[in-house]
Design a protein around this nucleic acid. Structure first.
Lengths: 159, 159
DNA sequence: CGGCCATACTTGACTTGTTCCAGAAAAGGT
DNA sequence: ACCTTTTCTGGAACAAGTCAAGTATGGCCG
């Protein structure tokens, strides 16, 4: 059941881990792999998916992997209010998120103004800023009352 | 120890509670009062401050009060990543926050562009949006390495 | 190729922040 | 004053995440 593309992907991922100064281990490869296919997943969901791939992995290991990769800039951690932390592999492009108040579905959206312009509030109050996090709250197509759903929504990946 | 201004404030607060269709109770008045003086406080901090004012109040009551007032639009709940929920009485003006990565200090900042313009992402993906939440992450003046602190920072109120 | 050591993973207990529940108390309309 | 509805109390429960101690593993070095 190993697709050739998976091998390429794995080699690529391994290299990115090494470049980041991290050891290449089965849990790390697996977490990064499933995360690429299921962005905005929670640690718990990732743990379950990873176990489906490589068998027994402790929840703690998943947290450790995510923390290590987040520290190295390989994954980004987002924490929308009212939801456990979610993770994604898309980093460094300062993109933002649409979050559904009703079902929690999370969708990427490119930065409205372009390249890191959001980094300029009206008054920085002396803060040394490094990131602007933007979350647009609302109702996703499937959760709007008087509208028929247009997109399929996967409860698992919340996409 | 009751200052005349407090009575005025209390009467005003009571009226705002009634206008919102909520009953006027001592815990509610007290929570709203201390919250006005300590924005960005956590539920736990508020509970302690409220007890200092009116004596024994259960933690649960504080959560209930905050939930009721948040539902009525009297308080706003913010939940920065890595921190317990924080509350503020400034609502309805779509302002944003500067949050210090090091100490968690939170500072209000007016919406950069004006009146609710942030509500327009580059692509809304079919979402029906009602709020844009913006958090600027960085280091507050006191936490910047090669700088002397300019503002006093109260760990309690995080202001 | 084989051993060594820093790093990563496992296990299990523990914290923290928050919610649920059932019953007692109190607010406010009639 | 009374009654209904809402709120408050206290305690238990819960989910997400952290901590700590011991075991296993990756990758370098001889």
């Amino acid at each position: 059941m190993v697709h050739p593309a998976d091998i390429t992907y794995a080699a690529d991922t391994a290299q990115r881990l090494r470049d980041a100064g991290l050891r290449v281990t089965a849990p790390r490869l697996a977490v990064l792999h499933v995360l690429a296919g299921h962005p905005h997943s929670t640690a718990e969901t990732l743990a379950r998916l990873v176990r489906g791939r490589i068998g027994r992995v402790s929840t703690q290991a998943v947290y450790d992997v995510l923390a290590a990769c987040a520290g190295a800039g390989l994954v980004r951690r987002i924490e929308p209010a009212g939801s456990p932390a979610r993770f994604e592999t898309r980093t460094g492009d300062n993109h933002h998120h649409l979050v559904c108040r009703s079902c929690g579905r999370t969708t990427d959206v490119d930065c409205a103004i372009g390249a890191r312009p959001c980094l300029t509030p009206s008054d920085d109050a002396g803060y040394q800023l490094d990131e602007a996090e933007v979350v647009f709250w609302g109702l996703c197509p499937s959760c709007q009352p008087s509208r028929t759903p247009h997109h399929h929504y996967d409860e698992e990946t919340r996409q």
